[in-house]
Amino acid sequence: MQKLTRIVTLSLALLMISGCSYFGVYKRDLPQGNLVTEGMAEQLRPGMSRRQVVDLMGSPLLEAPFDARQWDYVYRLDEAYGGVEQRRITLTFNGGRVVEIEREGDFSTAPPLGDERGIGPDREAAADDQEAPLDNLTPDRP
């Protein structure tokens, strides 16, 4: 009986520890914020209106709550098995026009947007479905 108790205890301990295995955990990159590229940042100029900035960059991620003259465009990529990449552009307005542009982070490389396959169905399978004739989908009529 004592041997059976040891076996059951050991089995339960191993079962509980196996649930904490590192090898079974899936992690993925987590991008957040406004996607800001080098090309977009290069087109920003002092004197641009708010409308021109929104047309170029999109809506800002943050508007300073106590100073409506400041807009922040922040992009943050938390890599699953790596570090954190952050880019930030802060625009300061005076009278509805950009007066100051502050850049923070490395804009020289494009941020990764996903793997080669992308999200969703396989592209090759989707292309095969589009090329299939529709004649074989209608029932035969006598």
Rank of each mutant, 00 (worst) to 15 (best):
residue 112 P to Q: 11
residue 91 L to Y: 07
residue 118 G to D: 05
residue 116 E to H: 02
residue 6 R to W: 13
residue 47 G to T: 07
residue 66 F to W: 03
residue 84 V to M: 09
residue 2 Q to S: 10
residue 43 Q to M: 09
residue 17 I to R: 00
residue 85 E to A: 11
residue 8 V to S: 04
residue 130 Q to P: 00
residue 136 N to P: 00
residue 79 E to N: 09
residue 108 S to P: 03
residue 135 D to G: 03
residue 97 R to W: 00
residue 43 Q to A: 13
residue 123 R to K: 11
residue 54 V to G: 01
residue 22 Y to E: 10
residue 137 L to D: 12
residue 97 R to M: 05
residue 124 E to P: 02
residue 127 A to N: 06
residue 37 T to G: 01
residue 40 M to F: 01
residue 109 T to D: 10
residue 112 P to Y: 01
residue 10 L to P: 01
residue 118 G to L: 02
residue 110 A to V: 08
residue 139 P to G: 06
residue 19 G to E: 06
residue 88 R to M: 13
residue 61 L to T: 14
residue 19 G to R: 08
residue 1 M to E: 12
residue 142 P to Q: 12
residue 11 S to R: 02
residue 20 C to E: 06
residue 110 A to H: 01
residue 27 K to W: 00
residue 55 D to N: 14
residue 114 G to Q: 04
residue 32 Q to D: 11
residue 18 S to C: 07
residue 81 Y to A: 09
residue 106 D to S: 13
residue 21 S to W: 05
residue 112 P to H: 10
residue 60 P to E: 06
residue 126 A to G: 00
residue 95 G to F: 08
residue 69 R to L: 04
residue 117 R to W: 02
residue 96 G to Y: 07
residue 10 L to F: 15
residue 90 T to G: 04
residue 79 E to T: 13
residue 62 L to Q: 10
residue 119 I to S: 11
residue 54 V to Y: 09
residue 3 K to E: 12
residue 77 L to Q: 12
residue 24 G to Y: 07
residue 18 S to F: 04
residue 127 A to F: 10
residue 120 G to D: 05
residue 46 P to R: 14
residue 68 A to I: 02
residue 54 V to F: 10
residue 102 E to D: 10
residue 44 L to V: 09
residue 13 A to K: 00
residue 33 G to E: 02
residue 138 T to D: 07
residue 24 G to S: 12
residue 3 K to A: 12
residue 92 T to R: 15
residue 6 R to M: 08
residue 3 K to S: 12
residue 122 D to C: 02
residue 43 Q to R: 15
residue 126 A to C: 01
residue 83 G to N: 11
residue 116 E to V: 03
residue 137 L to M: 11
